[in-house]
Design a binder for these strands. Structure first.
Lengths: 129, 129
DNA sequence: TTAAAATTTGATAATAATTACTATTACTCT
DNA sequence: AGAGTAATAGTAATTATTATCAAATTTTAA
């Protein structure tokens, strides 16, 4: 099935790519409404689902009730803050090595992949305290 | 707050510990009803939550809508089958090394921990095909 | 042991997140 | 432009989980 080019879809992906906050569907809905006030929440959900199926964005199924979405599809890692709940990108050199080992494992066992989520206090909460 | 010793709680934990299927609350509810037919789903949810808070069982927040619970609180890893959706324990020597590296990372960055979920076809689905 | 205090239960209602439905509107392709 | 397909807004439905509360059970401590 081919995706048509709708204004709604374009804005959704555009706004998501501007963010590094990994918004939930309803958070992005609020942002997108600034551009398209009459858009419905269902449209946001539908498009996020479609776009993640097509590999244009990432759907993050982390701890917590709500799914989150990420416009950055490059391989990277997430930290969920145990204090504020934010999901932030984490950049560590060690991850390369761990990633390599995990990929070896995945290959050897003919698996599909893995999902890793770190948890702890994020930088923002650390400095706030 | 101290937990009282109720029949319901005892059966819930007993039945959960017999399983290695990481049941959802409603799956366990069906099983527990064999022993206590009048038990309510709310009681199962409430106790699973309490027991996991007390560290007597594990609450697994993996991919998928429903939370799962594990009576085995020892450090081990899970594979979610992309075909049947089952969550199975995975025993691999490599995990020790990966676990060590991840724990080092967690320590160095003063994090709380990490959550890892492997995905692929489980043994049951492999042999069935 | 017994009565008051605390906790838990079953039953049910409420909530929250997501998905489904549908008539209408917008794209796409020739 | 016009037929065919896909998407939208608005709303209803669903699903998983949590909250509420009166009655029952368990614990505590005299």
């Amino acid at each position: 099935m081919k995706l048509s080019n709708t204004n709604q879809r374009r804005i959704i992906i555009e706004e998501l790519r501007k963010l590094d906050t990994h918004p939930t569907a309803d958070e992005l809905y609020i942002i997108v409404r600034e551009k398209i006030p009459q858009i419905s929440l269902g449209t946001v959900y539908r498009n996020l689902e479609l776009l993640s199926k097509k590999g244009q964005i990432l759907k993050l199924e982390l701890t917590g009730k709500q799914k989150r979405f990420d416009g950055n599809i490059e391989n990277h890692y997430h930290l969920r803050c145990t204090k504020c709940g934010r999901v932030v990108d984490i950049e560590i050199d060690d991850m390369l090595e761990i990633d390599k080992k995990l990929n070896e494992l995945v290959d050897r066992l003919s698996l599909d992949g893995y999902r890793l989520e770190l948890s702890g206090i994020c930088e923002i909460c650390k400095t706030e305290k």
